[in-house]
Design a protein around this nucleic acid. Structure first.
Length: 741
DNA sequence: ATAGGGTTAG
């Protein structure tokens, strides 16, 4: 957004904030009035902006109540942006209520004021640090305390009369000195003891480097002593006083080192010592619970925190975002704001991304409103996400409107925005529009990056323009772009679809063994398709050694490769194991093994598996039934095939063109004239259009019996004219074939 | 987690 947009956005939120602030006071009012005097002349723009941005800022005060602190931050930011910084500075300096200037936003206020007065040196460092002292953000406070200790306190402070190890006795307690002591310490227990001792010293806080070093140390200790209790006992022997802080530090070390089972032990050990975990400990424990997939446990801890802080909410939000649980994100966000905290830019971005990816644009706009309220400017990234969000929610026109709007307010689209547009159009089949955007990219002189190239490969493939897809791939070198996992997947699926299997091995040379789940799935699938079953299994082996969370695709390819590679028994055995351990496998998985068995000629086994799927109520779809019908047909169990065809409808699954093709061509082969007629009637009734091949088979069979013609005369007449038409255009058929699939 | 891109059975 341009400066203008930003200013107006802040103005807008400023007035909103005032109305929604829970308890307005004199400071807030005076801040606002100072700002408003400057802005009064711009008020006319306000209404305009509201309409222009089309942003639904949350306006229900019961829904989104803004705390006083936040309100002040916003007002201060508003002041910075529109040049009323002096007012803010004055109010801050006279200090009606300095408590108002807290949290991370403080840094932004200061930098804003500093920028506004650049050269005048109104804000010198001492003022800044004095104000920062009031910042209640743990990390920042730590940082400042440490900085101050080094420069003024510990500069002359030595440790001669303390209980500290001799090596550090003559040195000041600085991060560097502590780190070298930790490294040089001969025994792990001693190191840990020293680490605790440092933490006990006034105004000393360990830095990341020290914590990370301790991860290795405690790892060795846990191997040596097995339980936390024993480590604690040993520490006592060393004269370490076991205080809550010891548990806290241990917890933090285990937490950083991803040694979650031990972290849990420390946490429970803490309670058995009679200590009540503080917010920080509980935050860490909540995070651990999320990480080991105990969502309920995590929520229990969350609810149990007496004084939740920013991080309590931030951790919960982050996990629900990565789980894609928008419902829980909403709940947590609401409570967070209710308790006076706001997410930071990163978390807002993550939430927004989730909203847009799931096509929940309405929610996305609410989040944007909140972002504006908390003083975060709406960047081009945000616009890009919203554009793709509208496409995902199936509203291309709104995406385009938004795109035009962003240009109107001078927030210019970049390559990412264009990529979102192109992808959106392609997904909706609006190919022409997509290419118009692509030429716009070229005319603006923007060089496509690897993401856009990948999208182009994918797009050309979907359109059946395989040569152009390949050209993009070969052009990467010239463009100095490095292909990535997405590239390989796109080009491989392109080669598979176009049937250029002989090129597959050439592409796979560039992949190595460093592939992710999707790439591995596709790669093994490709190998399986071209009959390189052992290669497919090799790839799958590499994948399973990689700690990847194998999915339904993987299992499907695995069973297919096993089966078609000549090990159907092993495949069936694995099928039993996989179905036992995975509850939600989906129809694809079951269809794949059944089909593979049929292709091997093991019809009865296949049908047996299918029947069990029905009994077990596994999810089956139209493809599953079609495959089963094919098996029954090939096993010459004609009646069963026909009754399955009517059974599936009772299950709410309707035969499609492919199903009818399977059953009809089977019946034609067996010369089952009456049954063909019955199915054909059904087909016409359902309005299912058959493919030319099947039509021809039916026509050939039935036209031999003159008497039976009459019923289908009109249909056959239509087909006959199509047969001749198709002769003419049969050359350009392959493109059609792909775009249908 | 860090804007935008990729996979499956008949």
């Amino acid at each position: 957004m341009g400066e203008m947009g930003k200013a107006i956005g802040l103005l807008l939120s400023g007035t909103l904030v005032y109305h929604h602030c829970a308890n307005r006071n004199a400071t807030l009012l005076s801040l606002l009035s100072d700002v408003l005097i400057v802005l009064l002349s711009s008020l006319a723009i306000l209404g305009l902006l509201f309409r222009q941005l089309n942003v639904s800022v949350p306006v229900d005060p019961l829904e989104w109540q803004i705390s006083q602190d936040t309100a002040c931050n916003i007002v201060a930011r508003l002041a910075n942006t529109v040049g009323a910084a002096e007012s803010v500075l004055r109010v801050a300096a006279t200090g009606h209520d300095k408590r108002l200037f807290v949290k991370a936003t403080l840094g932004r206020i200061i930098s804003g004021v500093t920028i506004a007065y650049a050269g005048k040196s109104i804000m010198d460092l001492s003022v800044t640090s004095k104000m920062l002292w009031r910042c209640n953000w743990v990390k920042q406070r730590k940082k400042i305390l440490n900085t101050l200790s080094f420069s003024s306190v510990h500069g002359q402070y030595s440790l001669e009369n303390t209980a500290g190890p001799r090596s550090i006795a003559s040195k000041p307690l600085t991060h560097d000195n502590v780190y070298s002591c930790l490294r040089e310490s001969p025994s792990d227990l001693k190191t840990l003891n020293f680490f605790f001792w440092c933490a006990r010293q006034n105004n000393y806080f360990h830095d990341d480097r020290a914590f990370d070093h301790m991860v290795g140390v405690v790892e060795k200790l846990t191997r040596e002593y097995y339980s936390i209790d024993r480590i604690i006992e040993e520490l006592k022997v060393y004269g370490c006083e076991i205080k809550p802080r010891v548990f806290l530090l241990l917890l933090e070390i285990f937490w950083r080192g991803h040694i979650y089972d031990k972290a849990i032990q420390v946490y429970t050990g803490m309670s058995s010592f009679g200590y009540v975990p503080n917010t920080r400990a509980m935050n860490m424990m909540m995070d651990v619970n999320f990480k080991v997939n105990l969502v309920n446990g995590a929520l229990e801890i969350f609810e149990g925190i007496r004084f939740r802080n920013f991080f309590s909410f931030d951790i919960a939000l982050s996990h629900f975002c990565s789980r894609g649980d928008l419902v829980c994100v909403k709940i947590v966000l609401k409570r967070m704001i209710g308790e006076g905290f706001y997410p930071n830019t990163e978390r807002f971005g993550q939430i927004l991304r989730l909203c847009c990816r799931t096509g929940c644009v309405a929610e996305a706009f609410q989040v944007v409103g909140l972002m504006i309220c908390s003083g975060i400017s709406v960047s081009v990234n945000v616009w890009s996400m919203l554009v793709s969000g509208f496409f995902r929610s199936g509203e291309p026109q709104k995406a385009v409107d938004l795109f035009n709007k962003m240009i109107q307010i001078s927030c210019f689209p970049n390559l990412v925005t264009y990529t979102s547009l192109i992808k959106g159009f392609v997904d909706l089949g609006m190919v022409e529009e997509a290419f118009t955007v692509l030429s716009k990219v070229q005319s603006e002189g923007l060089a496509p990056d690897i993401v856009l190239c990948n999208l182009m490969i994918h797009t050309f493939t979907r359109l059946g323009r395989f040569e152009e897809a390949r050209n993009v791939f070969t052009s990467l070198k010239k463009r100095k772009l490095v292909p990535d996992q997405y590239t390989f997947v796109s080009i491989l699926s392109s080669l598979c679809l176009s049937g250029e299997f002989d090129l597959v091995p050439r592409i796979t040379h560039g992949i190595g063994t460093d592939f992710d789940l999707v790439t591995g799935n596709l790669l093994s699938n490709c190998f399986s398709k071209i009959g390189y079953y052992s290669y497919a299994l090799k790839v799958l082996g590499i994948m399973s050694n990689k700690d990847l969370a194998l999915d339904c695709y993987t299992y499907t390819v695995y069973l297919t490769a096993l089966c078609r590679g000549g090990a159907p028994r092993a495949a069936i055995k694995m099928y039993e194991i996989i179905t036992r351990e995975n509850k939600h496998l989906g129809a694809h998985f079951h269809s794949a093994i059944i089909d593979s068995l049929i292709e091997l000629g093991r019809y009865n086994t296949a049908i047996h598996l299918f029947k069990r799927c029905i009994l077990e109520k596994y999810p089956l779809d139209v493809v599953s039934f079609t495959v089963a019908i094919k098996g029954l047909m090939r096993a010459k169990r004609i009646d069963e095939a026909c009754s399955l065809c009517s059974d599936m409808k009772e299950n709410g699954i309707f035969p499609n063109r492919r199903t009818y093709r399977t059953i009809i061509s089977g019946l034609c082969k067996e010369k089952e004239t009456e049954k063909v007629k019955k199915i054909l009637r059904e087909c016409i009734e359902e309005g299912v259009e058959l493919d030319p091949n099947t039509k021809f088979k039916v026509f050939s069979l039935l036209s031999r019996y003159r008497g039976d013609f009459s019923e289908f005369r009109s249909v056959f007449e239509k087909w006959k004219s199509e047969f001749t038409e198709n002769m003419d255009v049969s050359d350009s058929d392959d493109e059609l074939f792909v775009s249908v699939g």
